[in-house]
Design a protein around this nucleic acid. Structure first.
Length: 820
RNA sequence: GGGCGCUUAGCUCAGCUGGUCAGAGCGCUUCGUUUACACCGAAGAGGUCGGGGGUUCGAGUCCCUCAGCGCCCACCA
C-alpha cells in the first residue's frame, strides 16, 4: 500500500464515505456493553435548503461523536428530519403555489409528505458528504407514523394528567399563516410607524386626546385607562368617553400599568391591540369586540371599512378622522412589533378555541431543571432561565393548518365531550377515521373530529423518544434515555430545549439529557445575520464549497470557532483547512519510506536526538491537552493546539531528522521512532475534525481495512515527557530560524551548505544538552561541521545571541572565494 | 428598561485557572525549485491588546467605569 503522489479529496472522500457505511464504522451497538453516549441530534427543519450554517453546527456535533467513538464509547448518533407541521406546510404553499383549501386536505397532505421526503433525501446526501458519522439505521421523520404515535401518546398522557386543556381565549394569531401560534414563535421586528393622537369625547363635551399607533382598532375600543396618580386624568375615572368616529361609550378606568409619560397619558384598550389589552380585558372583565377577522381583514364592527386589510383600514380611518376633525396630531415613531417568526407578519390576538399545555404553573421546576443541566458554553443557561422566568402564556399547541400530527381527539356532537382513543390505536387521524365511540359521557355516537394539527415542537420535543424507539424498541430506549447530550443552536433554546425539558419533566419526571451543547451560527460576512434568512442560502452552497475544497476543509472551518460563538463564513479559513489536509498528506508521504513495515518498539530506542526528545515530549503533552479540550466540548482549542504543533513539526522537525532518516543506522532508528509517534498522533488527534484525510493516511500507511475512527484514541506516555528536552528543542528551533534568516538575507538557498556552525555556550550543562542536537542542527542547517564550545569563534558571522548562546556561521571555503 | 456576549496586527480570529502571549491564518515585502510538498518553502514588516481608573511585585488575562457593536428578554399609547 502506498500513498498517491497527490491527495485527491474529491475522489477519496466519496470512496471513504461509502466504505465507512459498508463496514458499519458508525454502527451503534445496541447490545454492546461499552460506555454509552447518546446524542439527541437536532432534526433539521424542512423549510428550504441547507446552508453553511448547518455545515457549521452539525460538524461540531460530529466532532464529539467521533471523539467519543475513538475513545471506545458506544455512540448512539441518530438523525431525524423535522418535516411535520407549519414549516413544511408553508414551504409547499410557497413552492407549489397551492393551498390546502384549494386541493383538499388529503391531497395537500400528500404534497407535504412528498416535499418532506425530497428534502430528507437532500439533507441526508449533504450530511453524508460532510462526513457526519450518523448511524443511518436510526433515522426518522417527525411525520412518520411512529413519530405521530409518540406525539399523540404524549398528548394523551398530558391530557390524563390534566396538563393540557382546551380553552376559548385570546391567542396569538398569525393572519398570514392563518393559525394560532405560541409565544415562542413570535419575534420582534423594529419598524417605522406613525403615532396618531385622536380625540375621544367626554360626557361634558370636552375632548380627551389619546395616542395610538392602531387607529383601525377604534371600533374595538372597550375602555380607556389612566393612571390613578395622574393629576391630569385620574379625576376622570368612572366617567364615560365616546370613541371617535364610532361613538360607542367606554368607561374610563384606573390601572397602575398605565405609563403617564407615554402618549397623552391616557390609553385606549381595544380587543386586541397588544398583550396589555389582553391583560386589561381579563382583569377588568371588559366586553369583546372582534374588529379583525382571521385573515387580517376588518369585520362588521368596523362599519364602512369592513373588508379592508388592516393596513388599508388604518389609512382609511386616519383619513376619516382627519375629515371629521378628530385627528389632533400625527408623528413618526419607531415601533417594535411582534411578528410571526416564520413569515414576519405582525401578529394579532384572536379569541379562538385552542389547546394549551400548562407551563406557567411549573415555571420553578423548569428553571430548576435548567440549573441541573450542564450548558456549554455556560452562559447559555442564562438565556434559558430568562425565557422561562418571563413566560406569560401557556404553550399553545394547536395549529389551524392541514399538515401536521393530528390531535387524537373527537368531540361528541351531543354533549361536546372529548373522546380520546386507546393508546394501542395510535396513531390516528380523526379527520379521516371514525371515532372509537360511543361517547363516554352521554353515550351518543355522533362525533366531530378535531381538525387542528399540533405545533411542530410538540412532536420534536419528543425527539429523545422518537430516536430511541420508545414503543418499538423499549430495550433500546432504556439504554439511551436520558441522553448524554443535546446539541442545538441558541435561537431554539426557548422552543426545542425548553419544550423537551417540559415533556421530560411531565412524562418521566427526569431531565432529558446531562449536557446541552449550544452551537453558534455560521453567518455571512456582510450584514451579519442568519444565513438561512438571506436569499440564495448564503454566500456559497455547502455542495459548492465542498466540491471546491473538500469536506475536511469545511469541517476545519467549523472547528475553528468554539461552541456558542457565531462564525463568519471565511473562504480563506476553508482554504487553510485544505492546505492542512494537503500538508498532512505530504508529511505522510515523506514518512512512508521510513515507516513502511515499521513497528515501533514499546520503549524508546537509545540514541534519541535532542529534537527527537523535544518532539516526543511535546506530543505527550499535546495528547493530554487535546483530550481534555475535547472532553469539554472545546474542539476549537483541541484543533488549534494540534495544528500548531503539527506545522512546527512539518516545518522544523522533519528537516532536523531528515539526514538521520536517509542515512539509517541507529540514529535513523531513533528518528523513525519519533517520526512514527508524531504522524500517528497527529492523524489520530485530527481525525474527529478531518476524518477523511486522516483515514486515507491511516488506511494507506498502517491498517488497511481497519478504520481509524474506531480508535483507540492515543494515550499520553508520561515517561516521554522531558522538560529539559523541550527547552533544548526551543533553542534548536531558534538556531534553525537564525540560520535560515542568515541564508535568506544572503540570498542563499535553504539547501546551501555552511562550512561551519559554531555555538558558543558558556553553561556546561546547556552545552551538553545541545550536544545531543548536533545531528539535528547539521540536518536543518546543512553545516559541514558543528562546533559547540565555551569560547566564541573567531572570524565568523554572528547570527543569534539568546539563551546565553552565541551562534555564528561560516560559509564553505569555496563559496567565500567565489564571493570574494 | 433587564440580561448575556463581544471590542487583540490591513482582514478573519486564537489567547484556558493573571507572570516566554503580544499570537495564527490570509494579505503585504523580499528571497528560494534535484531525494514529502509550487495546491510549495524561508525570512521580514505590521498591534501602546476600545477609552479611563483600580487591585497586584506583575494584567489582553481580575475589579470598577465610559464608549461602541451584537444577541436574548421585556416594553412598545
Amino acid at each position: 500500500m502506498s500513498l498517491a503522489k497527490r491527495y485527491r479529496p474529491d475522489e477519496r472522500e466519496l470512496a471513504l464515505q461509502a466504505w465507512w457505511e459498508e463496514v458499519g464504522v458508525y454502527d451503534f451497538d445496541a447490545d454492546g456493553s461499552g460506555e454509552m453516549v447518546a446524542i439527541d441530534t437536532p432534526p433539521p427543519t424542512v423549510s428550504g435548503q441547507l446552508h453553511l450554517g448547518h455545515v457549521y453546527s452539525y460538524s461540531q456535533t460530529d466532532f464529539m461523536a467521533r471523539f467519543w467513538r475513538m475513545n471506545g464509547h458506544n455512540v448512539f448518533y441518530p438523525m431525524g428530519f423535522d418535516d411535520n407541521g407549519l414549516p413544511t406546510d408553508r414551504l409547499v404553499e410557497r413552492t407549489a403555489g397551492v393551498t390546502a383549501k384549494a386541493t383538499g386536505t388529503r391531497a395537500y397532505i400528500d404534497l407535504c409528505l412528498e416535499a418532506g421526503a425530497t428534502a430528507a433525501e437532500q439533507y441526508r446526501a449533504l450530511f453524508r458528504r460532510l462526513g457526519l458519522s450518523i448511524d443511518g439505521r436510526y433515522t426518522y421523520r417527525t411525520i412518520e407514523p411512529q413519530s405521530q404515535r409518540i406525539s399523540q401518546w404524549s398528548f394523551i398522557d398530558l391530557y390524563r394528567r390534566g396538563l393540557v386543556y382546551r380553552q376559548q381565549a385570546p391567542a396569538i394569531w398569525c393572519p398570514t399563516c392563518h393559525t394560532a401560534i405560541a409565544q415562542a414563535d413570535v419575534d420582534d421586528l423594529e419598524r417605522d410607524s406613525t403615532l396618531y393622537t385622536v380625540a375621544f369625547t367626554l360626557e361634558d363635551g370636552t375632548r380627551l386626546p389619546i395616542a395610538t399607533t392602531r387607529p383601525e382598532l377604534l371600533p374595538a375600543c372597550v375602555a380607556v385607562f389612566v393612571h390613578p396618580e395622574d393629576t391630569h386624568h385620574a379625576h376622570l375615572a368612572g366617567e364615560q368617553a365616546a370613541v371617535p368616529l364610532y361613538g360607542q361609550q367606554v368607561p374610563i378606568l384606573l390601572d397602575l400599568a398605565v405609563d403617564r409619560e407615554k402618549g397623552t397619558g391616557a390609553v385606549m384598550c381595544c380587543t386586541f391591540g397588544d398583550s396589555a389589552d389582553v391583560a386589561w380585558w381579563r382583569t377588568h372583565d371588559l366586553p369583546l369586540i372582534e374588529a379583525i377577522d382571521r385573515e387580517g381583514r376588518m369585520r362588521e364592527p368596523s362599519g364602512q371599512f369592513a373588508g379592508l386589510g388592516v393596513r388599508e383600514a388604518r389609512t382609511a380611518i386616519v383619513g376619516a378622522l382627519g375629515e371629521a376633525g378628530l385627528l389632533l396630531q400625527q408623528s413618526p415613531v419607531t415601533q417594535t412589533v411582534r411578528v410571526h417568526e416564520r413569515c414576519d407578519t405582525p401578529v394579532e390576538f384572536m379569541v379562538s378555541e385552542q389547546w394549551f399545555v400548562r407551563v406557567l404553573d411549573d415555571k420553578e421546576a423548569f428553571v430548576e431543571a435548567g440549573e441541573q443541566i450542564a450548558w456549554y458554553p455556560p452562559h447559555m443557561k442564562a438565556r434559558y432561565r430568562q425565557w422561562v422566568e418571563n413566560l406569560a402564556w401557556d404553550w399553545c399547541i394547536s395549529r389551524q393548518r392541514a399538515f401536521g400530527v393530528p390531535f387524537p381527539v373527537w368531540y361528541c356532537e351531543a354533549c361536546g365531550a372529548a373522546l380520546l382513543p386507546a393508546e394501542a390505536q395510535l396513531p390516528v387521524d380523526p379527520r379521516f377515521e371514525a371515532a372509537p365511540g360511543p361517547c363516554a359521557q352521554c353515550g351518543a355516537e355522533r362525533f366531530r373530529p378535531e381538525e387542528d394539527v399540533m405545533d411542530t415542537w410538540f412532536t420534536s420535543s419528543m425527539s429523545p423518544q422518537i430516536a430511541g424507539r420508545f414503543f418499538t424498541r423499549p430495550e433500546l430506549y432504556e439504554r439511551v434515555f436520558p441522553y448524554a447530550v443535546r446539541p442545538q443552536a441558541h435561537e431554539i433554546i426557548r422552543t426545542w430545549a425548553f419544550y423537551t425539558i417540559v415533556k421530560s419533566h411531565y412524562h418521566f419526571r427526569t431531565l432529558p439529557w446531562q449536557d446541552v451543547a449550544i452551537s453558534g451560527w455560521g453567518i455571512a460576512a456582510e450584514g451579519a445575520g442568519k444565513i438561512s434568512k438571506s436569499r440564495g442560502g448564503g454566500p456559497m452552497s455547502p455542495e459548492e464549497l465542498m466540491a471546491r475544497y473538500s469536506a475536511d476543509a469545511a469541517r476545519y472551518w467549523a472547528a475553528s470557532t468554539s461552541l456558542g460563538k457565531d462564525a463568519v463564513i471565511d473562504e480563506r479559513k476553508i482554504a487553510a483547512g485544505h492546505r492542512l489536509a494537503t500538508k498532512l498528506w505530504n508529511v505522510a508521504r515523506f514518512s512512508e519510506r521510513f515507516l513502511e513495515g515499521y513497528t515501533p518498539p514499546a520503549t524508546a530506542p537509545a540514541g534519541l536526538s535532542l529534537a527527537d526528545r523535544w518532539l516526543l515530549s511535546r506530543l505527550q503533552r499535546l495528547i493530554g491537552r487535546a483530550t481534555e479540550r475535547f472532553l469539554a466540548y472545546d474542539h476549537a482549542m483541541a484543533k488549534s493546539e494540534t495544528e500548531q504543533l503539527f506545522w512546527l513539526v512539518a516545518d522544523n522537525y522533519l528537516e532536523m531528522a531528515k539526514q538521520r532518516l536517509y542515512e539509517g543506522g541507529p540514529d535513523g532508528e531513533a528518528a523513525r521512532f519519533a517520526l512514527y509517534h508524531a504522524l500517528h498522533t497527529f492523524v489520530h488527534l485530527l481525525a474527529p475534525i478531518m476524518p477523511y484525510v486522516t483515514e486515507a493516511i491511516y488506511q494507506d500507511l498502517w491498517s488497511p481495512g481497519v478504520s481509524l475512527h474506531r480508535g483507540p484514541w492515543p494515550e499520553a506516555e508520561a515517561s516521554l515527557v522531558d522538560e529539559e528536552a523541550e527547552r533544548g528543542g526551543e533553542i534548536l528551533l531558534e538556531i534553525a530560524t537564525a540560520v535560515r534568516r542568515y541564508k535568506s538575507e544572503a540570498s542563499l538557498s535553504l539547501g546551501s551548505e555552511l562550512g561551519q556552525l559554531h555555538l558558543c555556550v558558556k553553561d556546561a550543562a546547556l552545552r551538553e544538552l545541545l550536544d545531543g542536537g548536533r545531528a539535528d542542527l547539521a540536518s536543518v542547517t546543512r553545516a559541514r561541521s558543528i562546533a559547540i564550545a565555551a569560547v566564541p569563534a573567531p572570524d565568523m558571522q554572528p547570527v543569534l545571541t539568546a539563551y546565553g548562546i552565541n551562534v555564528a556561521v561560516a560559509l564553505p571555503q569555496e563559496q567565500v572565494q567565489d564571493r570574494g
